[in-house]
Design a protein around this nucleic acid. Structure first.
Lengths: 218, 218
DNA sequence: CACGAGTTTTGAACACGTTCAATTCCTGGT
DNA sequence: ACCAGGAATTGAACGTGTTCAAAACTCGTG
C-alpha cells in the first residue's frame, strides 16, 4: 500500500507541529523533528523541501480549522457585525496555541520566496482559502453590505485581519486580551463606517479610493 | 587614539552595507564581510553581536538620510498634501538601492527580538526617529490638520508609511513604479478624507475610532 | 625600557538547515 | 521464487551564523 509513505509524512507533520507549539519555531530543529519521529534527517527532507515547508503545513491546518470553526459560529448570525466578529474571534481561537511562535511564523511567511506568503503571487492557495472565509461572512449578511463595496469588502476585511494578526503577534497581554478588545471595539465601528458610505461627500472619496485600488493592481 | 577601533567598526559597516546592496542580505555572509574588510570573523562579532545588528546599522543610516532628504524637500511646501507626498517619495528614494534586499530586511525587522522592530517596545529609537519625520510634515502644514486629529495624525501616517513600505517590498515593477503611483494617488485622497472629518456623522465615528485606539494602548 | 591591565584580534569549534550519493526496502511481472 | 526498477531511507558532508579561549596588541606607569 502507498499509505505507508503518507503515514510517515503525517507523522512528521504531527511531530513538527507539536514541537512548534511546545518549544517554538527556532528551537525546533530538523534533527530534533527527525529524531522524535524516529527517522533520519535526510528522510524528513524527502517529504519536506525545507523547514519553511513545515510552516506551510501549519498554515494549511490553521486555515482549515478557522474555516470550520467560522462556519459553525456563523450559524444563525445575520447582521454583518456579528458575522465579522464571530469570524475574527474564530481565527484568534485557532491561532492561540501558536502565539509564542507567531512572530517567527510571520517572519517566515513574509519572505517573497515563502510558499505561505499571502502578498506575493496573485493567487496563492493560502490567500484564496483565507479570503473565502471572509467572502462567506459578507455574502451571508442581511442587511447586505452596500452594493458598491460588496465586491471589494472581503479583500478589505481580509487585509484588516492580517493587521489584527500582526497586532496579535505583538500582544503580550495574558490570553491576548487586548487583541480581543480590539476586535470587539473595531467591528461595530466598521459596521457604522459602512453606513456612512451613503453620504454624498464620503461616497465620492470612496469611489476614488476604489478606483485607485483597482488601477494599482494593474 | 581610540579612533582606531571606531575606524574598524565603520569599515565593517561600510563593507557590509555595500555587500547588502550588491548581492543581498542572504548571500552576504559574515565570513564574506570579514574577508572583504580584512579582519577575522571573530573580530566582526566583537563589534556586532549578530548579523541582524548590521541591519540595524542600515536602518539607522536609511533613517537619517530620509530625515535629511525630507527636510530639504519640505522647504517651501505649505499644504499637507504636498508635504506628505514629498516625505513619502523621499523615503522611497532612500530605500531604492536596497529594494532587492527589502524583503529580507522586513523579515528580519519583524522579529520581536530584533532591535529594529518598530512595533515591539513602545519607544524604540528607530520608531521615534521615523515618527519624527511625519511629525515635522504635519506640524508645518498650513492650513493645519483638523485639531481633533492633529495629535494622532503623525502616528497614523507613519503606520500608513509602514504599509507603503510593505507594498514596495513586493512591488516588482521597474523602479517600483506602482508604489510611486500608489503614493501619488493616495495622498490627495487622504487630504480629501481629512476634510470629511467635519461632517457630523463621520465626526462621531471618528471620535470612537480615536477613543478605541487610545483604550487599546492601555 | 619593562611591566601589566585593558582592548582588540584570531581561528578553531559548535549546532544548525540543507544536499546528495549510496543503500535498503517494496512491489509488480515472469 | 526471482528479479528489476522505483520508492523510501540513511548518514556523512557542506556552508552558514555564532561562541569562546587564547593570543596579540596598545598604552599609561614605574
Amino acid at each position: 500500500m502507498a499509505a505507508k509513505s503518507e503515514q510517515t509524512r503525517q507523522h512528521l507533520v504531527h511531530v513538527a507541529l507539536r514541537m512548534f507549539r511546545e518549544i517554538g519555531f527556532e528551537k525546533t530543529t530538523m534533527r530534533g523533528i527527525a529524531a522524535e519521529a524516529g527517522v533520519s534527517v535526510g528522510n524528513a527532507y524527502y517529504y519536506f523541501a525545507s523547514k519553511d515547508d513545515l510552516v506551510q503545513e501549519l498554515y494549511v491546518q490553521v486555515q482549515a480549522e478557522h474555516a470550520a470553526k467560522a462556519d459553525e459560529a456563523l450559524e444563525g448570525l445575520k447582521d454583518l457585525g456579528s458575522r465579522l466578529k464571530a469570524t475574527l474571534h474564530a481565527g484568534l481561537d485557532v491561532m492561540a496555541p501558536y502565539h509564542r511562535f507567531g512572530a517567527d511564523f510571520v517572519a517566515t511567511a513574509i519572505r517573497p520566496t515563502s510558499p505561505v506568503n499571502p502578498f506575493a503571487g496573485e493567487s496563492t492557495a493560502a490567500r484564496e482559502a483565507s479570503l473565502g472565509i471572509f467572502r462567506t461572512a459578507v455574502a451571508g449578511a442581511s442587511p447586505p453590505a452596500p452594493k458598491k463595496l460588496r465586491a471589494d469588502l472581503p479583500e478589505l476585511l481580509w487585509l484588516g485581519y492580517m493587521g489584527i494578526a500582526l497586532f496579535w503577534v505583538y500582544d503580550t497581554s495574558e490570553g491576548q486580551r487586548r487583541t480581543r478588545k480590539l476586535v470587539d471595539g473595531a467591528v461595530p465601528l466598521i459596521a457604522r463606517g459602512l453606513s456612512l458610505a451613503k453620504i454624498p461627500g464620503v461616497n465620492k472619496v470612496l469611489d476614488d479610493v476604489l478606483s485607485l485600488s483597482r488601477s494599482i493592481r494593474n
